[in-house]
Design a protein around this nucleic acid. Structure first.
Lengths: 114, 114
DNA sequence: TTTTTATACCTAAGACTTGTAGGTATGTAA
DNA sequence: TTACATACCTACAAGTCTTAGGTATAAAAA
C-alpha cells in the first residue's frame, strides 16, 4: 500500500465529503469511508481517523446523521446514514462547496497541465 | 455593492491564491488583492482583511514575499512581490492544491448542474 | 461644513478543523 | 507469536479563518 501524497486536507472539506458519500449510499461506517476515499483517489488522499470520527460525531450531533451499530464477524460496526434533515443540508452544503470551488478556480486560473 | 455569498474560505486556500495572483503580476498591495478577488469572482468571494494581512505577513516571514512601501496620493501602499524562493515555492504549492482539488472532485463526483 | 464612503494599513480574541499520537479490541495471516 | 487489517475512540497542539475592532487620508455626498 503506497503512502498518500496528500497528507493534509483543506479544512472544511471533510464533512462535505462525508455528506456527499452518504448521498449515494444507504449507509457507511467510519472505516469504510477511509477506504472508499483511498479507493476513489487511487491512494492519493487519506482521511485520518483523528479527523473522521470527531467529524462524524459532530454531524450526528447536528442531526444530519443517525447511527445503528451492528456486529459483523465479532467486530462492532457503527453505520451512519443521512437523516431527512441531513439530506436537505447535504444538498445545500455540497452546492456551497461547489460554488466555492468554481470561484477558487476563477482566482487560480489554472492552466491545463496535462 | 452586493454582499458576497461565500463568506467563508476553505482554510488553506488563501495563501495559495495570493501566490497565484503574484505569479502573474510584478507586485500587488493588500487592498488591491481584495479588490482583484472580488472582480475575478463577480463579487461572490470576499477576502477578509483579518485573514489577508496575517497571511501576507506570514508569507513574507517565510521568505516567499518581499515588500516595498510607497506613498500614493497621500496614502501608504505596501507592495508585495514574489522572491526567487517564492517563485519556486508558489509553483509547488499551486500544484499541490491543484492535485488536492482533483482528488476532491473524485470524491465529490459532482454532476454538472448547469 | 460635516458626514459618509472608499482607500489602505493593522491586531486581538475566539471558533473551528485537522494532524499527530496515542488507546482498546478482534480476526487473520505470516 | 507476532504482525497486520479491521474497527472504534479521545486528547492535545497547530494552524487558519471570522468577527470585531482600531488608525488614517482623500473624495464624495449631504
Amino acid at each position: 500500500m503506497n503512502t498518500p501524497t496528500n497528507s493534509s486536507l483543506l479544512k472544511g472539506s471533510l464533512s462535505v465529503m462525508i455528506l456527499r458519500l452518504l448521498e449515494d449510499r444507504e449507509r457507511m461506517y467510519g472505516y469504510e469511508i477511509t477506504q472508499k476515499v483511498k479507493e476513489l483517489t487511487a491512494g492519493e488522499m487519506a482521511i485520518t481517523e483523528g479527523a473522521l470520527y470527531p467529524a462524524l460525531h459532530k454531524l450526528e450531533a447536528e442531526g444530519l446523521l443517525t447511527t445503528e451499530t451492528q456486529l459483523v464477524d465479532g467486530r462492532a460496526r457503527k453505520y451512519y446514514s443521512l437523516t431527512k434533515t441531513g439530506q436537505t443540508e447535504a444538498a445545500g452544503r455540497i452546492a456551497e462547496l461547489a460554488a466555492f470551488l468554481e470561484n477558487l478556480n476563477l482566482v487560480l486560473n489554472l492552466k491545463p497541465s496535462l
